[in-house]
Write a protein that binds this DNA or RNA. Structure first.
Lengths: 247, 247
DNA sequence: AGCTGTCGTTGATTTATATCAACAATAACC
DNA sequence: GGTTATTGTTGATATAAATCAACGACAGCT
């Protein structure tokens, strides 16, 4: 019986936790095989954080790297006067905290209850050096993030409020079960507040609220609950999101 | 004497070209040693492109990867109705074209006369597999690009026109010769047109023009030539860029 | 040197979204 | 279970930047 994991959780998680980790398939941990996973397990520590916790303080020394295994974390950058830009939401399977700098150039806070695996930087660097597949996987993830960032720059620089909200809802659509035809009717995951949505879309909370209300009025979305919205016409919303809106 | 390089340039560049390449120190090619450079040289092809050339067509198959050795390339994304967002400018030493997707999700065009080294995708993937240092270097570069993209999201989502232009000019400052104290007076490289600047900053050409004129009027910048601007007070511009503007 | 087209500047007016303001709904707390 | 704080909605008004419009400055070309 793995006593270690029960009596000294601080010293690293037991390999068994990684083996049965239900998010392993989606995450970078999948880049290494079961044998090597033991090393990964020793290098990481599991943390559970309540909503609104600071994961990374903007400008603090970049000492750790995180892999999200449950919940949603928001990443952001701020200006001296308090204006904020949320640069992304890291959901299950995503990592955060990778940087070449000595300090983090962004902050990270939990949106809801979040579980993360934390890797300390020296250990992460050792892992990268020893397991090329791990590094390969990381490169692929960062490349994907960059592609997303470019899409968001298009949204922030050139889209109208209506187009931004439509794009956001599409981006937060829950995945369909495979082998199921693409439906027009889809659920959306919105654990964050209107403030976070506004800061992500470069708008004010009032504009976000008004725009969501308008989409509801036009029967493009439904759901009276603020954090549980349902898209009624994905194709219509896609038209709106790309500016093919004739009105 | 290396006849090959003189008589069949199409078959790859000679290793000598890489060895003496004046941009090697700044680029990913620096990740591998002289011996291995021969393989890199064989895998690449040098191209010289006039201003306004298409390097990457948005949505086309992602078959190649480029390293800029001279000039400036603009990267952008478009909406169906023609609205454009320039997501970045790739100067000497930067690469472009890395993606996990089968097609490019962005376009790339030369701003001025540009020289690039082109790598075909299968060859690049072989290089990555064989030279971990090459991959390491690439990961570092993509990570830096992501950091820059986050900074640009803050600019696009939350900064005023004045703050955007100030940030842009600071970002385009030419590097100081090392061992020289930071001066208040610095040159700026602006090979691109007002249209490109506007599309980069999420503004119109008129707003960019008016804002630059205002900064000139206020003695923060000088230079009558449109593509040759000089910053008179770097610190003042930094204040403007971060919103510590009391006016 | 004069024409032609591109690029950049400046001014007048409009407009999308921010700001200001009030209130409603929901969640948190004793 | 009622009170208080937080979060979200809706309306009225202000404003930064867009749009519309005219013109100026060059660069390339014959």
């Amino acid at each position: 019986m793995p006593l270690r994991s029960r009596f000294s959780p601080e010293a690293g998680v037991d390999i068994h936790r990684c083996l049965v980790c239900d998010t392993r398939a989606q995450s970078i941990c999948n880049a290494i095989d079961d044998k090597e996973l033991a090393i990964l397990a020793q290098a990481s520590k599991r943390l559970s954080l309540p909503p609104g916790s600071v994961v990374i303080e903007e400008g603090s020394p970049a000492v750790a790297f995180f892999n999200v295994t449950a919940g949603t974390v928001k990443l952001f950058k701020s200006l001296p006067d308090g204006r904020r830009q949320v640069t992304g939401f890291a959901d299950v399977g995503h990592f955060l905290g990778l940087t070449n700098s000595e300090t983090y150039s962004f902050g990270a806070e939990t949106v809801d209850t979040v579980r993360v695996c934390r890797f300390m930087r020296p250990q992460l660097e050792a892992l990268l050096a020893d397991y090329p597949l791990f590094e390969r996987r990381l490169l692929a993830e960062v490349t994907d993030e960059l592609t997303e960032a470019q899409e968001q720059m298009l949204l922030l620089g050139r889209k109208t409020a209506r187009e931004r909200v439509a794009s956001f809802l599409l981006g937060r659509m829950l995945p369909q079960t495979p082998r199921q035809p693409e439906t027009e009717d889809r659920m959306v995951s919105l654990p964050m507040t209107r403030v976070d949505i506004a800061d992500y879309l470069g708008l004010t909370i009032e504009t976000v609220s008004r725009t969501i209300s308008a989409l509801r009025r036009e029967q493009i979305i439904t759901g009276t609950d603020n954090h549980g919205i349902r898209i009624l016409s994905v194709s219509r919303l896609q038209e709106l999101a790309s500016g093919q809106d004739n009105r």
